[in-house]
Design a binder for these strands. Structure first.
Length: 263
DNA sequence: ACATTGACCTGAGAGC
DNA sequence: TGCTCTCAGGTCAATG
């Protein structure tokens, strides 16, 4: 599902397709996805202007409107974007449709309406307001800072990784991958990780996110040595061949290798 | 301060 | 075929 690497891929997709074109009109099919703004207000803020630049923080994508606010998108569990010409080709479940004067269109697609469309003054302002933690892929989150974040946690390490207020961008799937590559069980207590394991975890986090972004978050293109392609019932660990285990952790289905991952 | 649960959504797949 | 149930998992609110 859309986590940091997916959203980063969508950000680059916007950069490659949708900047510097006058927005002629905009339609919102799912008003419930709007927060704190009406479809009419959103249209008034965007039409006649152009997208100028993009930013991302955690799982949030920001698209700056020239001389104006930032369009804010959250992909929820099923969000996607599509840039296309023929309006007859508008994808199913299009909830947001931006018509450019060029004749091209940008669709925001959410099969389930679990997502968010809005405006923000600036990414920094939004991040502060929402109480988001630092972006998980920000090089500024170095080992020391990472250790400090974990040290102050009471609960499990998987739940810490997924807490957007602690560190933003990691969800259920990538937290499993990061823990697998670090060799740590999802239910291990975050504060109990010794310095070596915290270092491994930090390194795995950076490595997983970097490779996933490079591969455009496409599961088909991720290495077979990763857990992610094997994230299904009764599959085998790509490292040791043991049967992967499935457990409810922090309310989600976690997959892990009982042999390779330890407390 | 943490975990747990259900709601929000919709479609796919299973079981009958 | 068609019905019902469960599951997927990001976020939020209520509860323990």
């Amino acid at each position: 599902m859309p986590e940091l690497p997916d959203v980063e891929t969508w950000r680059r997709y916007i950069d490659a397709t949708s900047l510097h074109q006058v927005i002629e009109n905009l339609e919102v099919e799912a008003p419930r996805m709007l927060r704190g703004i009406s479809a009419t207000e959103l249209r008034a803020n965007l039409t006649g202007r152009a997208f100028e630049t993009t930013a991302r923080h955690g799982k949030f994508l920001f698209i700056r409107v020239d001389q104006g606010p930032w369009l804010l998108l959250h992909f929820g569990m099923t969000g996607a974007l599509k840039y296309f010409k023929d309006i007859g080709e508008a994808p199913a479940h299009t909830r947001l449709l931006v018509h450019f004067a060029s004749g091209y269109n940008l669709a925001g697609i959410w099969q389930r309406r679990l997502g968010r469309i809005g405006l923000a003054e600036s990414p920094a302002d939004f991040v502060r307001r929402e109480g988001l933690g630092p972006d998980a892929f920000d090089p500024g989150v170095g080992l020391d800072e990472f250790r400090r974040l974990l040290r102050n946690r009471r609960g499990g390490v998987k739940s810490a990784l997924m807490d957007q207020g602690l560190i933003a961008g990691i969800g259920n799937v990538y937290s499993d991958e990061i823990l697998f590559q670090a060799g740590i069980q999802p239910e291990a207590k975050a504060a109990d990780l010794d310095p070596d394991r915290a270092t491994s975890l930090h390194r795995a986090l950076r490595h997983v996110l970097r490779i996933a972004i490079e591969r455009q978050a496409d599961p088909e293109r991720l290495p077979d040595s990763w857990l992610l392609p094997h994230r299904q019932e009764n599959a085998r660990c790509p490292r040791c061949g043991a049967t992967l285990r499935q457990a409810q952790v922090a309310g989600r289905t976690a997959y892990f290798c009982p042999e390779c991952q330890r407390h």
